[in-house]
Write a protein that binds this DNA or RNA. Structure first.
Length: 777
RNA sequence: GCCGGAGUGGCGGAAUGGCAGACGCGCACGACUCAAAAUCGUGUCUCGCAAGGGGUGAGGGUUCGAGUCCCUCCUCCGGCACCA
């Protein structure tokens, strides 16, 4: 009797699968399609830890089940390859990002291959490949043609030491730059935007159609932040200037006793020119705009502000003159950047009014619509969502395919020049402008194609642009004529199951939905939502309960686990350790548990027999089929594995295991542990069609012939009686009465309160003078 | 502050309103062994010799029956955070 040897088995089968093309995507249009997608990873130099593959294992189990059910399954993997870590590494060492990225991809791919994830590697893609970003740029041009891309000035984080723009992620909570330690400032720069706000309403409504975690839907709705209210103009005394405010409470207009403008408000320069305290105002504005958003939030919520002295606004309802303030508790980026302050009805306004000794006016509420009309305002809808800023003053991204004529007017690079290649002759070290500005080749290329005095755009695109359409490219990743052919898009899209981290509840998932809707409106797609079913995996923490990190020296490498216990035991453990979406600490002893389970499954082949199924075993078998099937669908992998263990434990108790039951068990185990099940199927000389087929439970056998009746007396569970399932009600109650005699003796049953739940419960309620459950007769 | 989610053995966790603690880990004892490991077996919420009682963060409620539903509160985790 040979011992279970995962190393030998797994190596053998991985080789067979690779050579036979076992997981090639079948174009077979006679089969229904199913598209299972993982959020593609950023290939970092550190490699994988055991937490990374958790989602991949789950989606793989799902994909394997679908194949066994007769679907044509698309299950691809790729690389979100552009991004900051590779660039920062280049800055530090001078190694080109192309090189480090390709090395990281090779490492990731090798680690993933050890786990028998059934990807079709012919569908592999990477966003940094010119063959891919050509189409990212092409899509940019389509969005540009349609007016969904525009350029405008925006405030960005500026590092005065490194002389560069920083991403928000590179600014620490105290407002200093992560790299240089300099105090980050805000600068007004020309930036490219995607007009995602055009789709704000549809992005909210579409959420009702998809099977996503409720919390993710709520997060997206909150992020979009739709809010109904009114825009009302306040005139300025002795001036023809007006200030427009947004409010959700026009009914409180009479109570507006002062106004507040955000420090970024465009009218401020004008107003302060007439103010008595011009210098104070300018100083306040300067201090406030210098602070990063993060810093503005990190500060205690103590209100600050300055009055614009000598300038008054007129409340359009009460006609009273009211003071105007600048204060940073009003945000420039929301509504109109100005508010009417109603301290009687708003906590923040009240706090401010208290600090600056402003009057608080109690008022009667008006009808919102009527008062808005009366003062010449209008009802409007405002969103917290802003247009998507996609310019990055960075090297390692897809170049924005735009050139400027000698007058500085932007022009789209014509399609025939795509891919608009990322130059390689650049200085990575930030010098105050985007690294692409240091490329002689890019400038020469631009002048050669467009003429003397033309200049290239030197910003690159946010990497989220690249990942907003990769799920479309997977339908047809090698197409040179289009981002994907119509036929392939129709065949595979939308994604039926999408698995990935909960950290992407807002950005990536919303950008991708925006792309889908915009491309639908351009006629390229025929569906509204890209991801029909979405699930998030929970983090795997280290054994010490902290996040796995080199810093804590607590990282568990999946390669080591595969070496010790095999990929099958690792896969099983990651699914068994707890609810899929929950964050759980790693425990290597748990892998020992699933390894032992597989050992027992292995040893069982020695006691197979062509016996018929006993009724008890048959029922358990059918129940296991039913449970494992529905649990996989519901992403309750932990209880699915548990059900498999229960069946296997039952096999262990038997002298001989009926072969047919064992084969069914192998089918159910197969998506979880593909190597051992293939090996055992081969040893049993099973043909593909005999076992690589998902079993269906025989519903008629799911219920037992005898029912266990729980008997309650006075609300307390007492005893179980077994009866034939078909026994009529009166007879069951009679049996129950008999079984519970001990607790019923000498007491009177309230007959009409005897509860009978078929097949489950008989509950006797007693007359009881002491507790008076019911009124005495 | 607001919006989600969750509190169950020594640990991870299980439980369509119907036997709380499935399954796994750990631990204890036993078998095998010169011995250990591995493996197998038995036990493992708590009080009690037992019959029986108590027990799912706290308190109340609904119900024949509550871990599960409702109310109040506490704690933890995640997200948003002066959004007018």
């Amino acid at each position: 009797m040979s011992k279970y040897d995962p190393r030998a088995i797994e190596k053998k089968w991985q080789k067979i699968w690779e050579e036979s093309g076992a997981y090639k995507t079948k174009a077979d249009s006679s089969k229904p399609k199913y598209y299972v997608l993982d959020m593609f990873p950023y290939p970092s130099g550190a490699g994988l830890h055991v937490g990374h593959p958790k989602g991949y294992i789950a989606s793989d189990i799902y994909a394997r089940k679908r194949r066994m059910e007769g679907y044509a399954v698309l299950h691809p993997m790729g690389w979100d390859a552009f991004g900051l870590p590779a660039e920062n590494y280049a800055i530090k060492t001078g190694t080109p990002p192309q090189k480090t990225t390709d090395e990281s991809i090779a490492t990731f791919k090798k680690q993933i291959s050890n786990l028998a994830l059934s990807y079709d590697w012919e569908y592999e893609l990477a966003t940094h490949a010119p063959g891919y970003y050509k189409w990212t740029q092409w899509l940019f041009l389509k969005f540009f043609e349609r007016g969904l891309v525009y350029k405008k000035k925006a405030l960005v984080n500026w590092d005065p030491v490194d002389q560069t723009v920083l991403a928000n992620e590179q600014v620490l909570a105290d407002g200093t730059a992560e790299r240089s330690g300099a105090k980050v400032e805000k600068r007004d720069l020309e930036q490219w935007f995607f007009k995602i706000t055009d789709y704000a309403d549809e992005l909210i409504e579409g959420l009702d159609k998809v099977d996503w975690p409720e919390s993710t839907k709520i997060n997206q709705r909150n992020w979009i932040g739709k809010s109904e209210g009114a825009e009302i103009e306040f005139t300025i005394a002795n001036s023809d200037k007006k200030i427009k405010i947004f409010t959700t409470r026009p009914d409180t207009l009479f109570g507006a006793t002062y106004m507040v403008l955000a420090p970024e408000h465009p009218l401020l320069a004008d107003l302060s020119a007439h103010a008595e305290n011009k210098a104070d105002i300018e100083k306040y504005i300067q201090d406030a705009t210098k602070k990063s958003d993060i810093e503005r939030n990190a500060e205690e919520k103590e209100k600050t502000g300055v009055e614009i002295k000598g300038v008054k606004a007129i409340n359009p309802a009460s006609k009273e003159e009211i003071p105007i303030y600048v204060a940073d508790y009003v945000l420039g980026g929301y509504g109109t950047g100005a508010i009417m302050a109603v301290p009687a009805h708003d906590e923040r306004d009240f706090e401010f009014a208290k600090k600056f000794n402003l009057s608080v006016k109690e008022i009667e509420l008006e009808d919102p619509k009527k008062i808005t009309e009366q003062v010449g305002g209008k009802m409007v809808t405002t969103y917290r969502l802003h247009d998507w800023l996609i310019s990055r003053q960075r090297y390692w991204g897809a170049p924005i395919p735009v050139v400027y004529d000698p007058e500085g007017k932007p022009h789209a690079v014509p399609e025939e020049h795509l891919p608009w290649l990322l130059p390689t002759d650049v200085e990575y070290l930030p010098k105050g402008t985007s690294p692409l500005g240091t490329s002689k080749e890019l400038l020469a290329r631009t002048e050669k194609l467009f003429g003397k005095g033309w200049k290239p755009e030197i910003d690159t695109m946010d990497t989220f642009v690249c990942s907003s359409w990769y799920y479309l490219r997977f339908a047809d990743p090698h197409n040179q004529e289009a981002f994907a052919s119509k036929a392939n898009l129709e065949r595979w899209l939308p994604v039926d199951l999408y698995v990935g981290g909960a950290e992407h509840t807002v950005l990536h998932l919303m950008y991708a939905r925006f792309f889908t809707k915009a491309l639908r409106d351009m006629g390229y797609l025929a569906f509204d939502e890209p991801f029909l079913k979405l699930r998030h995996q929970g983090l795997i923490l280290a054994e010490d309960g902290r996040k796995m990190s080199k810093r804590w020296n607590n990282v568990i490498n999946p390669d080591d686990m595969v070496e010790r216990f095999g990929a099958d035991a690792l896969r099983l453990y990651e699914m068994f350790m707890g609810p899929f979406e929950q964050q759980i600490a790693w425990n290597t002893n748990g892998v020992v548990g699933t390894y032992r389970f597989l050992e027992r499954v292995w040893d069982m082949r020695e006691k197979l027999a062509e016996n018929p199924l006993m009724e008890k075993l048959d029922i358990l078998l059918q129940q296991t089929i039913d449970k494992v099937s529905s649990d996989i669908e519901a992403f309750k992998f932990n209880t699915a594995v548990s059900a498999l263990m229960i069946l296997s434990n039952h096999f262990s108790e038997l002298e001989q295991v009926p072969k047919s039951a064992y084969v069914t068990f192998l089918k159910l185990l197969h998506p979880f542990a593909p190597h051992i099940t293939h090996e055992l199927a081969e040893q049993l000389t099973l043909k593909r069609e005999e076992w690589e087929v998902w079993p269906v439970a025989d519903a008629s056998k799911l219920t037992t012939a005898t029912a266990k009746i729980n008997i309650y007396v006075d609300g307390i569970f007492r005893v179980i009686a077994e009866v034939d399932s078909r026994t009529p009600k009166e007879e069951v109650i009679a049996v129950a009465k008999n079984a519970a005699q001990r607790w019923l003796a000498g007491r009177e049953i309230v007959e009409h309160k005897t509860v009978y739940v078929p097949g489950k419960v008989v509950s006797f309620v007693l007359y009881s003078p002491s507790t008076s459950i019911l009124p005495q007769p």
